[in-house]
Write a protein that binds this DNA or RNA. Structure first.
Length: 437
DNA sequence: GCATTATGACGCT
DNA sequence: TAGCGTCAT
């Protein structure tokens, strides 16, 4: 459940930067002949042409969607180029995209606190940079404002394509704007510069949202894609949320959003305004109730965490349908391969970032053939993580065996594993002194 | 049992 | 804490 946090008293400038169809762009940089061509990145391809995990905007025009298989995509877009994710040890290897994501993070982390939200998304707290710009070189004193900033979308501004740039310029330079809007205007210029810098240094385009909090910035970054940015002045929030379908709000795309619709007839975020905080708490508990009351008003106090690296590393693979692993002998090599990859990744994290992982976790999914219907899930198991591939393999195998015993519960001797994941968590920096020893 | 995979973050108990 | 569930892409 989401947790309600009060909005800080001082106005912040928060940006959410989202790479456009990132995996596709990474492949297009490697193979420039694919630029401008309908393209998708697929994982594997023997079953129905592989699963699409990223789709270029040229391909989206044909109706190609991420939920499709390669074969389906070919049907609606016969000329689509399908690029396969690299495979190592029989599983998809996403390291190429992780490394590309890190390139982007290093560039975006230069103007303020930066949070890696996923492999291709970051949040930035640009409050300090915006305040500094406002006091030293406010927009209305600039001789020239970047074209990229002038192409911004300002929510609430008249939507006249002919003179849009002119309207944006006026909005950015308004001397009668309040302090909040002036800070946002500075944020718009800073983010435009950052996006230009990312494009110049990585060749990747991205989209961005600029607002007073993370929730609104995230909402805005998705409104105009690809390669565009959108700013949310406070005066536009009520109207924006009034018509926003409830399931489009972050955290409400799942069961909570559905139950709001079912229990209270709420179809838009704005509909939440019809309910008191107490009523929302009555239905969904104190925390969630207050959180809902807040988001209806565009209030979200979540801070941008200064974190450029992931908090955990996971390696997993599914074995659907006929591929299910039905013997210990068939599980072993797969688990070993996953542990090998995990070991490499935490070793690299140690060398590059001086961080140590402390916990090894094994997750699995499976089924058992049983007279009596039973639905016990395969339990997750964890233990202290010891470095070294062989040790990780040994420990993961013990975790698997103990999980399997629990799972089977003396009820069955026929079973199948449909998914295996090993992950490393509780990753902490190595104290600087201990590096000397 | 089963084909939206592979990965992440985070809250609850 | 260990383990589970939810949400996102």
């Amino acid at each position: 459940m989401p947790v309600a946090r009060p909005e800080p008293l001082a106005s912040r400038v928060i940006a959410h930067v989202d790479m456009d169809c990132f995996y596709v762009q990474v492949e297009q940089r490697k193979r420039p002949e694919l630029k401008g061509v309908p393209t998708a990145v697929v994982q594997y391809n023997s079953w129905k042409g592989g699963a699409l995990i990223a789709v270029s905007y040229e391909a989206r025009k044909f109706g190609v969607q991420r939920s499709m298989r390669g074969d389906e995509a070919k049907k609606v877009c016969p000329d689509i180029q399908l690029v396969q994710v690299p495979v190592a040890r029989g599983k998809a290897d996403l390291n190429l995209y992780r490394d590309a994501g890190s390139e982007v993070v290093s560039l975006l982390a230069t103007k303020g606190r930066c949070e890696r939200a996923s492999i291709d998304e970051v949040y930035l707290d640009l409050t300090g940079a915006a305040e500094q710009m406002l006091s030293a070189t406010p927009p209305d004193t600039l001789e020239e404002i970047d074209e990229e900033a002038l192409k911004s979308h300002v929510l609430g501004l008249p939507n006249d394509p002919c003179s849009q740039g002119e309207y944006v310029k006026q909005w950015l330079c308004r001397s009668d704007a309040d302090h909040q809007d002036k800070l946002l205007a500075c944020g718009v210029i800073i983010v435009a510069q950052l996006r230009m810098d990312v494009l110049k240094k990585t060749s990747f385009t991205c989209s961005a949202g600029i607002a007073h909090n993370k929730m609104l910035a995230k909402l805005a970054s998705g409104m105009h894609k690809p390669a565009q940015q959108t700013v949310v002045p406070s005066s536009s929030v009520t109207e924006l949320l009034a018509s926003l379908p409830i399931n489009k709000m972050k955290q409400l795309g799942g069961k909570l959003g559905s139950s709001l619709q079912r229990d209270l007839g709420v179809t838009t975020v704005g509909n939440l305004l019809d309910f008191t905080e107490e009523k929302l708490q009555e239905y969904y508990g104190r925390n969630t109730g207050t959180w809902l009351w807040n988001i209806a008003r565009g209030i979200s106090g979540d801070e941008v965490e200064g974190r450029l690296l992931p908090k955990s590393h996971g390696c997993g693979k599914t074995f659907p349908g006929q591929q299910a692993l039905r013997t210990l002998t068939s599980v072993k090599p797969w688990l070993n391969g996953l542990c090998e990859e995990l070991s490499e990744r935490i070793q690299s994290d140690l060398e590059k970032n001086k961080r140590v992982a402390h916990t090894l976790i094994l997750h699995a999914e499976g089924f058992k053939v049983c007279e009596v219907p039973t639905n016990r899930k395969f339990p997750s198991k964890s233990c202290p993580l010891r470095y070294g591939t062989a040790k990780i393999q040994e420990d993961a195998w013990k975790l698997f065996e103990s999980g399997l015993r629990e799972f089977l519960d003396l009820q069955s001797n026929e079973w199948g594993i449909t998914s295996l994941t090993v992950s490393a968590s509780k990753i902490l920096p190595v104290p600087a002194v201990s590096l000397l020893i």
